[in-house]
Design a protein around this nucleic acid. Structure first.
Lengths: 148, 148
DNA sequence: ATATTTTATATGAAAAGGAATATGTTTTTG
DNA sequence: CAAAAACATATTCCTTTTCATATAAAATAT
């Protein structure tokens, strides 16, 4: 590692850590026939019961128009369904299908194994501290950066 | 925050922290007329003296074919130049131009200000610990993930 | 030395993403 | 209640990225 500015730059360390740590798992996702954004949608939908397009966009780190297209694809391949919002007819609620649930199960198991492996080099305390710092970063920069 | 799997999933926390922390600065970059990938290239080139296409790809978190096209654009807009490798003629070495240097200067200053602001909420020790953990993640997952 | 394999970069077609805006719906205002 | 504003999602056009592969130069093997 040369002694360049970026080597000690927080934004770069974050982006690179995310990229490096995710690389192997994202490669595995292809073997389950899932794109990264599809995986994020299915993982988000696998717990609750339906989410709005906008909520999914925020969670999958995509913009809303991109999420509309992601959902288009997933509807076409039978992973999710769309239903028009109940009282508020502007909304579109997205639900995971049985096929989607089937497809995401292995990926969820693989994600848990992979995370355990990455964290195996850390003590429980270190791992908690890392996650806690990341959560703090997310909270502090989430919607507060308006007044810059 | 609902109690979904992803809310405590390391890869998601990393991706989201990176995304949230970078969002404001990446928006500012547009005002300097730079794309994120262009900024990463120029920031990498601003210290040393020329880097190979492949090195830049790794640094800018892009694939090699994408970097070739990024450099194409940057050559067209006069931010960098290309020179064929010296002993090894397969290589292509990329250099920042005076115009590139001029364009990246404000962005570099803004990056330093922004980083200081993000880290202002942490003590020096906490900041160092965060960066150190990120560096560890990068190193341990950088090229070792082959034997999975 | 020649053939083979590896390495570095480039190319081309197809997929995905981004920015601006359109559409339809609800909320707010006067 | 009518008009205006705010909202949630969709659409369009254009740029960027991906994937697979081509090209060309070194390194290695026979």
């Amino acid at each position: 590692m040369a002694d360049r500015f970026v080597d000690d730059y927080l934004l770069y360390l974050l982006a690179r850590a995310s990229s490096e740590v995710s690389a192997q798992f994202h490669a595995d996702l292809k073997q389950y026939g899932l794109q990264v954004s599809e995986w994020r949608v299915l993982a988000s939908l696998s717990d609750g019961d339906g989410m709005l397009t906008g909520e999914l966009a925020a969670r999958a780190l995509q913009q809303q128009p991109t999420m509309t297209k992601t959902i288009d694809r997933m509807v076409r391949s039978g992973l999710v369904t769309r239903r028009r919002g109940a009282p508020d007819r502007r909304q579109v609620r997205v639900y995971i299908t049985p096929e989607g649930r089937r497809r995401v199960e292995n990926a969820l198991a693989a994600a848990k194994r992979h995370e355990a492996e990455v964290l195996s080099e850390y003590s429980r305390e270190e791992a908690d501290r890392l996650k806690s710092m990341l959560r703090t970063l997310i909270e502090r920069n989430g919607a507060a950066a308006q007044d810059d």
